[in-house]
Write a protein that binds this DNA or RNA. Sequence first.
DNA 1: ATGAAAGCGCTAACAC
DNA 2: GTGTTAGCGCTTTCAT
Lengths: 346, 346
Amino acid sequence: MKITIREVAKEAGVSIATVSRVLNGKEGIRSSTKKRVEKAIHKYNFSPNQIARSMIVKESKSIGLLVPQLSNEFWATLAEVIEAELWLHGYTLFLCTSSTKEDSLLKEKAAIHSFLQRKVDGIIYSTSSGSDREFQAFTENLKQQDVPIIAFDQRIPGMNQIYGDHIQGAMDAVKHLILLGHTHIAYIGGPLVSPERELGYRNAHTVHNIQVDENLIFRGEPNFQFGHEATSKLMASGTPFTAIFCGNDLIALGAIHVMEAAGLNVPDHVAVVGYDDINMAGFSKPMLTTVHQPIEEMGKTVVDEILRSIHRGNSIGQICHLVFPMKLVIRESCGASKRSLTQTNH
Amino acid sequence: MKITIREVAKEAGVSIATVSRVLNGKEGIRSSTKKRVEKAIHKYNFSPNQIARSMIVKESKSIGLLVPQLSNEFWATLAEVIEAELWLHGYTLFLCTSSTKEDSLLKEKAAIHSFLQRKVDGIIYSTSSGSDREFQAFTENLKQQDVPIIAFDQRIPGMNQIYGDHIQGAMDAVKHLILLGHTHIAYIGGPLVSPERELGYRNAHTVHNIQVDENLIFRGEPNFQFGHEATSKLMASGTPFTAIFCGNDLIALGAIHVMEAAGLNVPDHVAVVGYDDINMAGFSKPMLTTVHQPIEEMGKTVVDEILRSIHRGNSIGQICHLVFPMKLVIRESCGASKRSLTQTNH
DNA sequence: ATGAAAGCGCTAACAC
DNA sequence: GTGTTAGCGCTTTCAT
């Protein structure tokens, strides 16, 4: 038989209201009745239906997280951190992934819709769908919803957001290469939708009065495969280059892989810098010089922020931007350890 | 104002029952009324409350997934596959992670409890908590619940389960090393709770009439860090060894890393074989010889299976075991490419 | 073909 | 302190 609050009430000889009070730890209950109720609860191994509860209290104690994928360590780690942090606060996580072979934006829309229908208390939204008309219409619509939403690593006007300072991160990386003496630095990055790293790359050139060679720029999917492809093209093109700045570590690993196969040594022949500082970066060979993202802090902060939005009610419409500094981690792949900075600095 | 089915009904000039019928695509509605209702739905941008719905229809179209962690590529990929497959069938995923610095079993219990309270339609359960009394009591209790549960890569008596044939996988790996001429093969594996790989390691020795040296066996956390530690100890111990079979790829990468640092070349001085075949395995240096797990198939199958359990009702108590074959992938780290099998075979 | 009404399992006034 | 009752937003008989 299905056990509900009613059965428990009958067993304890009290009303369902009293059981509810015990369940929710309300004040003003004779400790003897409380005991009886607890005994009944235990006897039936009763556990209240959270779904029924949330219909009344208007909170589901769940939040929805949308990430592009999980098979990329960056996102996986972020999801792990977010889940753990939410759990600490009594929230459970709905997780959706948006990268599909077909239409990612379609999945994104549907995922958010699913979250909304399931009455999540908040949404953490992070994907890379692009910035076309359709996307903008979608995010406009999103802002109308009365659920707190926070965008992760995405610049959506008028929406609370948290992101890394990738212009700074990319600049630091490229500046480092320039100070190492490189003037022909290629950029192999993600799709056009996340232009910050490319911007940082360009800025670093500008600051140092170096002309960017557009033939050295490659954009595509941010994965190992693309690092491979783009680097192959780069080598085949004949355009001179002595360093590559990559949009993420997977791309960097792919780049290193083909170059080694082609007889080019990293960092002796070509210096490489990645982005993200995934675990692997610390034990690839050569170990990757890369831009470290403080995932842990970012994950915790995004949770704190979404919870705050939930609790203060979505009253004051003050949009907040939380931006995190990036940190260049110098290892082997850029060759910094093999050269003297003063010697090549100009 | 909050839009419910009631507002839509009023707008369309029908009863809420009719709106419900339209929403659920029921037969027998005059197409003119249907149109009116749809127009009203559209006008208000109405989307039904899934929570209220599930109270009545007794299904939440959600399932709970519990994995040890996400920062391990194996689990992350599995979660990704499962989410995608569930989505195709109209289900949304609750995700929990069980590895904590404190008590993992505690979190596991709480996570399952949370799933149950949220009335998930099914649970995919995979962790590595151990096999002590408390754990057994817990799983016993689990089986009493009237929610379909399927254990992933875990042997829980009396529960539906799906797992890889790790004894076979490990045997294949170790046999390969033996055929390559190795007789002093270390094993650096996960905790005692998942003994299959160690068993396969031992079996391979037995089959080939080689004595296992217990000093060559190390157990601990299945991560890079532990691979590092254990291998350091192994080298320091002075026990002779020419090969290491690792419980997973992260351990293997850790092992290779320290050995290289200590001046030992892999595979020239020591052969290494990993387990899982994570992406990284294909582009580490040396590329990892490892045991490939068919994650994609396993993920899809576990979803099919849980959905089947849901739909047939948990009637016939036939327990099913779905076991998947593992496949040894030979790359560089075992040195197979450098030696002739016939030459070392005995 | 459509509406009225009875709940799903719970919480929150409002009584007493 | 504790019970009674009216819903939360929906689906589903049972009428008509």
